[in-house]
């Protein structure tokens, strides 16, 4: 700040300015070289990460982008043929791509709101002074620690027509479902499983943010006569808005990329009757079953574009300035 202050009040003639400048120039020069050294060591420290990210993230992204404009022949001699936007126009005519997009959108629209609300409520419950809250925190967090492949296989057992869930429903005299094989139900089965597994992760994020909220705010509200619910709605939720933005964005990105659960559920086919076909699963099928890398890359670029647009919309929706508070 000091140099700036010195400069502004000085309304001296040009001469003095000029005479000052050489001095100034010398100083920055030293700073520059010092800074350059700092920078160099910084980059040296970063170089392992830059190298890894470059090789495994940046180059593949650029390469996928390049592939999406080509017709790629892989088996029996690798060949590329530039075909412009043909891969992209093909997506509009691909009924399975539309089904995959519809399934994915449905999945996102149901799972993200539910898991966000659930995470918030769980966090609120565990933030209050209930007995054994530490034990509950551990128990609730356990699903997140479990590998999703293992989780899916265990859920498939429970979803079996004669499995745990149907037996339980039968016991309560509720209707039972064919959770795995009925096309109307299969995607919902995955939704339930995923909400159960992901909500606790976001709960922890909410919980951490809630503990940052100053008690004085709640005390003031108590003095004003606010009850528990009013405090939650008018204090906790608004203060947590930036966190909610993070949770929703991460949730949307994660759900758009649904792959492993539906892959295991359907044995890679996206069945029954394309009901668990998601965009990423379709990309996998085109890339590795049909070896149609060009088209698969185009689909991946389209998916990235959709996620980007949705994220931008959310940013507008939640208000940007809140993020920097």
């Amino acid at each position: 700040m000091e140099p700036a202050r010195k400069e502004t009040p000085s309304h001296e003639p040009d001469k003095s300015k000029k005479s000052k400048q050489p001095n100034k120039k010398q100083k920055p020069k030293r700073y520059m070289s010092k800074g350059w050294k700092e920078g160099l060591s910084g980059y040296l420290f970063m170089s392992p990460t830059i190298f890894t990210i470059g090789v495994f993230v940046v180059i593949p992204i650029l390469y996928a982008f390049y592939l999406s404009f080509n017709d790629v022949q892989l088996l029996g001699g690798i060949g590329y043929e530039f075909i412009g936007l043909e891969n992209y126009t093909r997506t509009f005519d691909d009924s399975r791509a539309l089904i995959a997009l519809k399934n994915t959108a449905e999945y996102v629209l149901i799972v993200v709101p539910v898991q966000t609300c659930l995470a918030l409520l769980l966090a609120a419950a565990l933030n209050s002074n209930i007995r054994g809250k530490n034990a509950f925190r551990i128990i609730f967090f356990l699903p997140t620690v479990t590998s999703s492949a293992v989780l899916t296989i265990i859920f498939m057992w429970m979803y079996n027509p004669d499995g745990l869930i149907n037996s339980f429903l039968k016991f309560l005299s509720l209707p039972t479902y064919n959770w795995l094989a009925d096309p109307d139900i299969a995607l919902k089965s995955i939704m339930i499983m995923n909400i159960w597994a992901t909500a606790p992760f976001f709960m922890v994020i909410y919980l951490a943010a809630m503990q940052d909220i100053s008690d004085s705010v709640y005390e003031a509200a108590t003095i004003d006569g606010a009850n528990w619910w009013q405090k939650f709605i008018f204090i906790t939720v608004p203060i947590l808005k930036p966190v909610t933005f993070f949770v929703v964005v991460m949730g949307v990105i994660g759900t758009f990329q649904l792959f492993d659960q539906s892959y295991i559920f359907s044995g890679g086919s996206g069945g029954p009757n394309n009901s668990t076909l998601t965009v990423v699963l379709l990309i996998y099928q085109y890339a590795f079953k049909s070896l149609d890398m060009g088209y698969a890359s185009a689909l991946a670029v389209v998916l990235a574009f959709i996620i980007m647009i949705v994220t931008i919309i959310q940013k507008k929706f939640f208000g940007e300035e809140k993020l920097h508070d």
Partner: peptide, 16 residues
Amino acid sequence: MKFNKMLAAVGVTGML
């Protein structure tokens, strides 16, 4: 200190 930092950086790069 700076020198040590540099050394460490070079070391890390070397390992890589």
